[in-house]
C-alpha cells in the first residue's frame, strides 16, 4: 500500500526509484517482491533501498496492482475484473504494459508476474495475427515468400 500520513503500526520500508523519487511502502507489501526480500535479508533494512531499473510512474502501477491483488483474494468478481483490465491496457498503452512487465520481472513478484503474463496471453488468444500486429505495432519483416513458407509449414494453426 502506498504510504499515508496517518500510518499504521506496521513497519515502513523506504525505496528509491531510478528517477530519484522516494517511496514509503508497508513492509507486507514490499516483501511481495522477492528482490526486496533478498535485499533486506542482506541487511539493507535500515537504509533506502535503490531500485535502479524501475521508474516512479511504473513503480506506482506496481504498488497499485499489488494492492488490488491482495484485495482480490477469494473474490471471484474482483479476480475477473483484474484479469480483464489487461486487454484495455494492451490496446491503449503497450509501452506501459511492457515497462510494467519488466519491472515485475525485475522485482520478482510472483503474483503480479502471473497476472501480467496472463494479460498478454489472453490478449493474444483468439486474435488474428494481422490484428495482433496492428494493435501491438509489430512490423511484419518477412518477405512474401518467407511468409508463405511459414503458413504452409503449419497450415493447421492458421485456419
Amino acid at each position: 500500500m502506498a504510504s499515508t500520513s496517518n500510518s499504521t503500526s506496521s513497519k515502513i520500508i523506504t525505496l528509491r526509484s531510478s528517477d530519484g523519487e522516494v517511496f514509503e511502502v508497508e513492509e507486507s507489501v514490499a516483501l511481495e517482491s522477492n528482490l526486496i526480500r533478498r535485499m533486506m535479508e542482506d541487511d539493507c533494512a535500515n537504509n533506502i533501498i535503490p531500485l535502479p531499473n524501475v521508474t516512479a510512474p511504473i513503480f506506482y502501477l506496481v504498488i497499485e496492482h499489488c494492492k488490488k491483488h491482495a484485495e482480490m483474494k477469494d473474490n471471484k468478481e474482483k479476480k475477473k475484473e483484474l484479469r480483464s483490465q489487461g486487454e484495455e491496457l494492451l490496446k491503449s498503452d503497450p509501452h506501459t504494459y511492457s515497462n510494467l512487465m519488466e519491472a515485475v520481472n525485475y522485482l520478482d513478484i510472483k503474483s503480479l508476474m502471473d497476472l501480467t503474463a496472463q494479460w498478454l496471453a489472453d490478449f493474444l488468444k483468439g486474435k488474428s495475427p494481422r490484428l495482433i500486429r496492428e494493435l501491438l505495432k509489430i512490423k511484419n519483416d518477412f518477405t512474401p515468400e518467407e511468409e508463405a513458407e511459414i503458413l504452409e509449414r503449419n497450415r493447421w494453426a492458421f485456419d
Binding site: G126, P129, I132, N140, F142, I150, A157
Partner: peptide, 10 residues
Amino acid sequence: KCAVSTSILS
C-alpha cells in the same frame, strides 16, 4: 495452436 500462429507475426 495459438502459440504456433504467432510465428507469422515477425
